[in-house]
């Protein structure tokens, strides 16, 4: 794997991935914008700094594992995977098109480097826990880590809390869960649809170590993950407070962008806001000179 990027570079990289996400979703004509944008820093930190991975050897046995439980945000993962070298960036524009490896929701068997298949919410934490159980109890591997990203809305699912109990019971210390706390879900704000708070208290009572961070601060993300590695008797959950649609002013905080893709005009506006128009092409969008 390549040289680790510095925090400032990572922050810029996150913005590049956001640009890719806007272009991909505009080209696809459908998809989930808000969560894909707000996960940019977390996904960037994982793929470009935190995880032991080898894009040229996706099944490397000593790799760290990344599971996206809220599979609808996969455009940001695809963008990171292309950028880090799992496949050519050209392929990004095939998102959601017939015959693509970049399915609307991730499918493991289609794309090397994807660890699982997800979309229906609430199952990723259990799968991550199963892998972490294997590392800790069956494989005698103390150095591998399993990272799973969940949306906050998906915490409505009972399967999540079954997994939380399981991971707590077995003290799965190589399991690191992120909650993308963007406060939105399809029907509105999470606290109106089905209140999640006291989120810290809930996870602590299930036997987890809880860390709360600014999910858009790369240094905070890396520091939090480093801390989890020193906690060896419990699973860790990082509640990452994020802004839905982060980076594009007219999308931020708006649950209406959960499951909607930008049209060409909106994409152009978004790209101008993101300020990166050099190496992209969106039909009908004039590039900045």
């Amino acid at each position: 794997m390549g040289k680790l990027l510095e925090v400032a570079d990572l922050q810029k990289k996150a913005n590049d991935l956001r640009t890719d996400v806007i272009c991909m979703l505009e080209a696809a004509g459908s998809g989930h914008t808000a969560g894909s944008l707000d996960l940019a820093e977390i996904v960037t930190a994982l793929y470009f700094n935190i995880m032991k991975i080898d894009p040229k050897n996706p099944s490397w046995s000593d790799r760290d594992i990344f599971l996206l439980s809220n599979g609808h945000t996969v455009p940001i993962q695809y963008a990171a995977m292309a950028e880090v070298g799992y496949f050519d960036r050209e392929e990004l524009k095939t998102l959601r098109k017939l015959g693509t490896r970049l399915q609307g929701h991730p499918e493991r068997v289609r794309l090397p480097g994807l660890e699982n298949t997800s979309g229906p919410l609430g199952s990723g934490l259990s799968q991550a826990a199963g892998y972490a159980y294997s590392l800790q109890y069956l494989d005698d591997n103390k150095h591998g880590f399993v990272y799973v990203v969940m949306g906050d809305g998906e915490l409505d699912e009972g399967n999540i809390w079954e997994a939380a109990m399981f991971a707590g019971k077995y003290k799965l210390s190589q399991l690191v869960a992120f909650i993308d706390r963007n406060n939105i879900q399809i029907d509105g704000s999470t606290e109106n649809v089905m209140p999640l708070e006291d989120l810290r208290g809930k996870w602590e009572s299930f036997g987890w170590h809880v860390i709360e961070i600014d999910g858009h601060n790369i240094k905070s993300i890396i520091d939090a993950v480093n801390l989890t590695k020193a906690i060896t008797n419990r699973p860790c959950v990082i509640i990452a407070y994020t802004i839905a649609g982060k980076g594009v002013d007219f999308m931020e905080y708006d649950f209406n962008w959960h499951g909607k893709a930008p049209n060409t005009e909106q994409a152009a506006k978004a790209l101008h806001e993101l300020g990166v128009l050099d190496d992209i092409s969106v039909p009908g969008v004039e590039k900045n000179e």
Binding site: I65, E115, N116, G122, S123, S126, Q127, A128, A129, G130, Y131, A132, Y133, S134, L135, Y137, L138, D139, G158, N159, E162, A163, M165, F166
Partner: peptide, 28 residues
Amino acid sequence: PERFIEIGISEQNLVTVASGLAMAGKVP
């Protein structure tokens, strides 16, 4: 005993943890 995992009364967790174990190369 080291290869037996008690899941409790949670069948959704039963099969999804099994999926994760299969991902890790096991035959669950």
